[in-house]
């Protein structure tokens, strides 16, 4: 929670890497003081000691000193390198989500945030997360640039239309924290925000279990894949299907017709759906139609989640129209447990 002092001077510290940013901050304040004090002192000292004693005097000439010039070029350079290195290390910690983080999908839209948990819960402008769990946000927007900013976690990232960006954190203190949009996005930019609630893992489970849960993104994706969008007609035919095999492709390397290759990640799947002719997989005809304009950002995220969930032996065979039976709450519980098991601390 925000401190209650009359004038707040320092934000809450509520994520696993927040202290690193704060240390960097203090280090820089220290360097600034160490720099500023001698300079300011010298300015005052010289300005007073050598103040004009006789109008328009001509003091003795001093030409400069190469030794001094070299010294005061090298010292700042070396110091600046420590700042650079410290900043780079912290940056990589902030921006490289650990494997097996609990994934939450985020879609920004003028002027609200839509969140969807792996278990299907949807939230708007509020985000509930468990304490001590690595949480990764996979984010995009339906319109303009936005930016998820959680000051107490000392992190933010732009949300960019047409692609996925990610943000991760591991919350360390139970509480309620500001969530902002930090990239200007038009009329109600300053209203585009809300709260992040950090809960004890078991409270979080209860929270997930309570409240109407819908289908999980994976289930929604499966429904789209099997029925609504007809992907299955090409991608679920078994041996002689016309479309590429999607089971277990996530994280692998694919080769394209005409050379080139890419690693299959969220972004790649997204592009394969919106712009299939952009990268045709080796051994296949470019027959897949583009689904651009036919799927929303949220449906895309669901498709991505579904394709990610396909393991080599979970063949989406059977072009039947009934999604596999699964009870949302049971699903929710396992999701939380596995997420909690991945926790850092």
């Amino acid at each position: 929670m925000q401190s209650n002092s009359w004038v707040p001077l320092f934000p809450d510290q509520a994520s696993s890497f927040a202290w690193q940013i704060d240390y960097l901050y203090f280090y820089l304040i220290l360097i600034s003081i160490a720099f500023a004090i001698p300079i300011v002192a010298a300015i005052f000292f010289f300005a007073i000691k050598y103040r004009e004693k006789e109008k328009f005097a001509t003091p003795e000439e001093i030409h400069g000193s190469t030794t001094l010039e070299i010294a005061w070029s090298i010292i700042p350079f070396v110091l600046s390198m420590t700042i650079f290195l410290g900043g780079a290390i912290v940056y990589f910690n902030q921006y490289r989500p650990p494997e097996n983080s609990m994934e939450i999908f985020v879609v920004g839209k003028q002027w609200m945030w839509k969140f969807q948990h792996g278990t299907g819960q949807r939230e708007i402008n509020e985000l509930h997360v468990p304490k001590g769990v690595n949480v990764k946000l996979t984010m995009t927007t339906e319109d303009v640039l936005h930016d998820v900013f959680i000051p107490a976690f000392r992190t933010k990232a732009d949300v960019v239309p047409g692609r996925y960006t990610t943000l991760w954190f591991n919350a360390t203190e139970v509480g309620k924290y500001h969530l902002y949009c930090a990239e200007y996005c038009g009329l109600n930019h300053s209203g585009m925000g809300g709260w992040v609630y950090v809960m004890e893992p078991k409270d979080f489970e209860n929270w997930l279990a309570g409240g109407g849960t819908g289908q999980t993104p994976t289930e929604i994706g499966k429904d789209l894949f099997m029925n609504k969008l007809g992907c299955a007609s090409c991608h679920a035919g078994g041996q002689n299907q016309r479309g590429a095999k999607l089971e277990g492709i996530f994280g692998t390397e694919v080769k394209f017709v005409g050379g080139g290759s890419a690693k299959v990640d969220e972004e790649y799947i997204r592009n394969s759906i919106l712009n299939p002719s952009g990268q045709v997989v080796e051994g296949f005809q470019p027959i897949m139609p583009s689904f651009k304009g036919q799927v929303t950002e949220e449906q895309l995220l669901a498709l991505v989640a579904y394709i990610k969930s396909l393991t080599p032996n979970s063949a989406p065979t059977g072009t039947t129209s009934t999604p596999a039976p699964s009870t949302p709450s049971a699903n929710a519980n396992t999701a939380t447990k596995s997420a909690a098991a991945n926790s850092n601390k």
């Binding site: 940013i21 780079a88 912290v90 000392r154 933010k156």
Partner: peptide
């Protein structure tokens, strides 16, 4: 000097756009 704060990437993430 505050430019150095912003040039340092880890701090920049927290400080930019504020």
């Amino acid at each position: 000097l505050t430019g150095l704060f912003l040039g340092s990437m880890g701090l920049n993430v927290h400080l930019t756009d504020t």
